[in-house]
Design a binder for these strands. Structure first.
Lengths: 334, 334
DNA sequence: CTGAAAGCGCTTACAG
DNA sequence: CTGAAAGCGCTTACAG
């Protein structure tokens, strides 16, 4: 492995100048820079990351702390890894990963300590894992993804749940639906409560009455959605707002089992907009996080924080992404 | 941030001894070690990773090179990340990630160079990506996952496709099935060809004739499986071997559309054993890679290679994992 | 724009 | 079992 010393010697400059020519920030005569770069290229020189990191105090790597469940039971984890990997790569940053299940080996504290990463993206739900919270006190610049009111001292980044839910319900209203029911997620979860609230608000704003039997609490699974829809069907709704896409899939099945069609008889909207929503039959009208955007913003924010760790914590809210597809239409005319 | 120097000073020993006491390999008086550890603990000392890496020549991090498609279109990527993360963590190794789509930013060559990782796990299909192959020549210890005959110079680790396929077909034969048809993946893919070969072999070994119309080539998707099964149904098979689980899902739908039941009328087996196979109705009998085991072995092998890079390349083949579930039974008696 | 020098914080032969 | 010393390969004020 050639070192910077060799590159410098063959270029006829000092190590300092070679370093400046290669890293690009400082002022170096153009001709010198070219010569050094050519020599480095011809030698196949790769700067030693450890040495660079030790001297500069920056590793050029960011870490992601993710609950294992979000990777195994949910498309979210894979999408997030994908997005962050892209965003990090665009800034020439490496990406390290730590999944919260790892008890037997090293803790997140150990694995991400000692300057191995310059910053951290932490999924808010990871804070339920007892090893994770302490790392936020470790002085590593961090961005928290999602909602976590207990840590107003760290930077937050999340998608507007409430406004997103409003979008889909307003869409149903604008199509002319009046009898709109809803299937919610578990109401001990903030996101489920917020989505229900958005439903209530929009209905009220449009002079549409909501009675308790129009709201069915379920569990974010397809089976739960099917069961809930079966119970709502006697009300003869023309549209349903489901608290997530999974339940919308189940609800669609229930509607078909009753001999009805989506969207001819009943329009249906979901929440999340994971890839399955697009390939579903019919493709589901839904709203969700733009995970690519979220990832990009997270890395941008982290880069700012790494450059200036004293930045005051902010709670940044991104707009939700609304996708009108084929599961919604006008209510039946009679 | 406390440094090793401070730990040494407060412990009343030299920096060298403090280092030995903390890393644990070398011989240090037990009492000394205890004292140093206590001091380190009380200071909240974390060794600087860059310094350690620079001095020792080891980063304590391994990298994973994964085709983006395996993460976004397939459960395989997420399962592999999960498994490797576990396995790496058990050895106190960090895990860095590089997805093959990342053109705009840094190449895999740059991101994993300069000693930032001690070793690499590379998905064999990643080699189709032009940036990836050169890294195998870069002198970083690497383990290739899957089959890639073009690089006999690197260590391979893969699951026995052929033996796995044999298991499920033999299972059907042992249940008494004689009219067994097959739906294959695209026959320009090695894995599809191998699975078909296993089918032919088992059939022949058991004196069961295979005619061309009993083999339907498809595309590994549910829709493809449905269409293929619809074409095979006129042959009145009592069992189907599908080249992957996805096609088995589609084939099941085709069977039901024809008014038949799985497994009462037709038994069905798949290949892959991703999580969906277990939750499918009926739960699918299938065979697949044990990704947790594969990951563990990959990290074990990599650790050996890092310790001794001169180890001769081996092609290690792991057994497939067979799961008998509810989609198979005896053929109808008439 | 360039160089000499110090220093980043560890590990590891080499002696003893 | 322990210490003094060298060294890992860079970056970055400080001068000029």
């Amino acid at each position: 492995m050639p070192t910077l010393d060799e590159v410098a010697r063959l270029s006829g400059v000092s190590r300092a100048t070679a370093s400046r020519a290669l890293t690009g920030d400082a002022k170096v005569k153009d001709e010198t820079r070219k010569r050094v770069k050519a020599v480095a290229e011809s030698l196949g020189y790769r700067p030693n990351r450890a040495a660079r990191s030790l001297a500069s105090g920056k590793s050029g790597v960011i870490g992601l702390v993710l609950p294992t469940l979000l990777l195994s039971d949910d498309p979210y984890g894979a999408l997030l890894i994908h997005g962050l990997s892209d965003a990090a790569s665009r800034r020439d940053l490496g990406l390290m990963l730590w999944l919260t299940h790892q008890e037997p080996g090293s803790t997140v504290r150990e694995i991400f300590s000692g300057g191995i990463v310059d910053g951290l993206v932490v999924s808010a739900t990871a804070l339920n894992h007892r090893w994770v919270e302490p790392i936020l006190d470790g002085g590593i610049p961090s961005v928290l993804l999602g909602r976590h009111p207990s840590r107003p001292d760290v930077h937050h980044l999340r998608v507007d749940n409430l406004a997103g839910a409003r979008l889909v319900v307003e869409h149903l209203v604008s199509l002319g639906h009046k009898k709109i029911v809803t299937i919610t997620g578990p109401l001990d979860r903030v996101d489920a409560v917020e989505r229900l609230q958005a439903y209530r608000d929009v209905m009220e704003e449009n002079g549409l009455t909501v009675t308790d039997d129009m709201i069915s609490e379920s569990n974010y699974t397809p089976d739960g959605g099917l069961a809930a829809m079966a119970r709502l069907l006697p009300l003869k709704p023309t549209a349903v707002f489901c608290g997530n896409d999974q339940m919308a899939f189940g609800a669609t099945e229930a509607i078909r089992l009753a001999g009805l069609d989506v969207p001819t008889d009943i329009s249906i909207v979901g929440f999340d907009d994971f890839p399955d929503a697009r390939s579903f039959r019919p493709p589901l009208t839904t709203v969700g996080q733009d995970i690519a955007l979220l990832s990009q913003r997270a890395v941008d924010r982290l880069a700012e924080l790494i450059a200036d760790p004293s930045l005051p914590p902010e709670d940044v809210i991104l707009p939700a992404k609304f996708s009108i597809r084929r599961s919604t239409g006008a209510p039946p005319s009679q």
